[in-house]
């Protein structure tokens, strides 16, 4: 009896010690946690002190299914119906007993949402949350040599309390000290993603990465959704090359040739050295029957040289052939 009590006391003491040791390990100087430190020292003035997206629904995770569970939560938050059972065949990889990062992005696109990988900074993640978007993060719950990779959803933070709030595994609400969160997050090279409804620009968006994310949505076959996101992107960055080319290509794919022409013309004016802009403008003008303008644009595209010159030359030849057939125009 006494032995049992002493053993229990030892277990309790040991548990307390080990939690303290783990916390100390995570927070002590032996690991450098610059991001949470910087946020504590000098938080950006325009970042709200705290936020929590309590309306983000919770999907409990079974065994290895944190990928589908976290996606279901952020999809629901973006207004798309989804559950773990439906998403498992889209993202879970049986042979790896887990879900790959790029497939998390791919599955998001398949569901008509824009998958944007947030720049690897804690501040960017918090900005997304402050703007109302929950963020999927990849954590390593173990040591670097024997990683235990785990997806969780950041739904809140409190700068004064120094906390990051997660939905994770079987826990609907889990508040970690910011330093511990950064410690667990760093092994994934601070990997984080958001799933945005078409037409919304991420709070942490940077132009090249965000434009590439929209182009990926277009490439996955979601043209109408991509078009809405290109438009939003162009409101923020009106001369974005990828934005203008993408808008033109999606307008064309959706059957709006006048819209495509307008977008390619904007691209050509803003980027005189873009063979893509002039080639695509030439092609659309040709289809609209304006062969003289088309030929001029195609000749400019060819004159720019570069790796796309063969395509531009093909476009020019097609236009010249059409002009030969219809010399009057």
């Amino acid at each position: 009896m006494i032995r049992g009590e002493r053993f229990a006391a030892r277990v309790r003491a040991g548990f307390l010690f080990s939690v303290l040791a783990a916390a100390a390990l995570a927070l002590s100087g032996c690991v450098s946690l610059p991001q949470s430190g910087a946020l504590r020292e000098a938080p950006p003035a325009d970042l709200p002190r705290k936020a929590e997206l309590t309306a983000v629904p919770f999907h409990v995770q079974d065994d290895f299914l944190c990928g589908p569970a976290t996606l279901a939560m952020v999809f629901n938050a973006a207004g798309v119906k989804a559950d773990v059972a439906g998403l498992t065949p889209q993202v879970y990889l049986p042979g790896r007993q887990g879900s790959l990062q790029v497939e998390m992005l791919g599955a998001t696109r398949r569901n008509g949402l824009l998958a944007y990988q947030v720049p690897p900074r804690l501040e960017g993640v918090l900005r997304e949350v402050a703007a109302g978007t929950p963020v999927v993060v990849l954590l390593n719950l173990s040591v670097r040599l024997l990683p235990l990779w785990h997806y969780a959803v950041v739904i809140g933070y409190d700068l004064d309390a120094g906390e990051v709030v997660l939905r994770s595994g079987k826990r609907e609400r889990l508040a970690y000290p910011a330093g511990l969160f950064e410690f667990l997050w760093q092994d994934s090279a601070h990997w984080a993603m958001v799933a945005l409804p078409p037409g919304r620009v991420a709070a942490s968006a940077e132009e090249p990465g965000f434009a590439a994310a929209v182009a990926a949505l277009e490439q996955a076959g979601k043209r109408g959704e991509a078009r809405a996101s290109y438009r939003a992107l162009l409101e923020r960055w009106p001369t974005s090359h990828i934005g203008l080319i993408g808008l033109g290509n999606t307008e064309y794919a959706m059957g709006n040739k006048a819209g495509a022409e307008a977008a390619f013309r904007r691209a050509a004016l803003a980027h005189r050295d873009s063979a893509v802009a002039y080639n695509n403008l030439a092609h659309v003008l040709s289809e609209l029957g304006r062969l003289v303008d088309a030929e001029a644009a195609a000749r400019h595209a060819v004159s720019l040289g570069g790796p796309l010159q063969p395509e531009a030359r093909k476009t020019l030849e097609a236009i010249l052939a059409r002009r030969a057939q219809a010399p009057a125009r």
Binding site: S18, A22, A23, Q101, W149, G169
Partner: peptide, 29 residues
Amino acid sequence: LDSVPAGANGTGAVFLIAAVVLIVWLFWS
């Protein structure tokens, strides 16, 4: 493909490190 991270496990984070320290403590104290 065989070595990129595959996110899966969902147990509490500190607890894994804690469990290791706990085992060491129980056997060596």
